[in-house]
């Protein structure tokens, strides 16, 4: 059921995305895009001395699912160590969303994870 994807909390994250905006002094950055639907995300990360994620911000445009998942993921990874954040999987993102994402929209849900993984790989 596709309407089940549009829960209040997902719409809330879409309308008021957390950690949205550029991050000055970011040590890590990645840009990902899905040209098929025009979704684009930029993730910015900053680590503290303990190698934990001290700050995370993102910018971009996309559908409800991609923006909400980016917003939720940005909250989730703050404070995580590099190793912990590298271990995140598709299932973790789906768990954050907490709704059944229909197969046609799976890529929207995982675009933010792709961005984080790429950012971690780029110094």
């Amino acid at each position: 059921m596709s309407l089940a994807m549009y829960q209040q909390n997902i719409l809330d994250h879409y309308k008021y995305p957390r950690n949205f905006g550029p991050l000055l002094g970011a040590q890590h950055h990645a840009h990902v895009a899905n040209p098929l639907c025009g979704d684009e995300l930029d993730f910015f990360l900053k680590f503290d001395e303990q190698e934990k994620i001290a700050a995370v911000k993102f910018t971009g445009q996309g559908c409800t699912i991609s923006i909400a998942s980016a917003s939720m993921l940005s909250e989730k990874i703050k404070g995580l160590s590099r190793a912990e954040s590298e271990k995140l999987t598709k299932d973790d993102v789906l768990k954050l969303l907490g709704v059944e994402v229909n197969p046609a929209r799976l890529r929207c849900a995982t675009l933010s994870l792709e961005a984080v993984q790429q950012a971690l790989g780029h110094h």
């Binding site: 596709s2 025009g38 559908c63 929207c108």
Partner: peptide, 28 residues
């Protein structure tokens, strides 16, 4: 509202439309 969200929610109401660039990226 993103076109994919429009498509998904209309689908729920039995209305089948398309969302995307419709093989016309240059125009979009």
């Amino acid at each position: 509202v993103h076109p994919h969200d429009i498509g998904s929610i209309l689908d729920e109401q039995g209305v089948a439309i398309r969302a995307g660039h419709h093989c016309a990226m240059i125009l979009h």
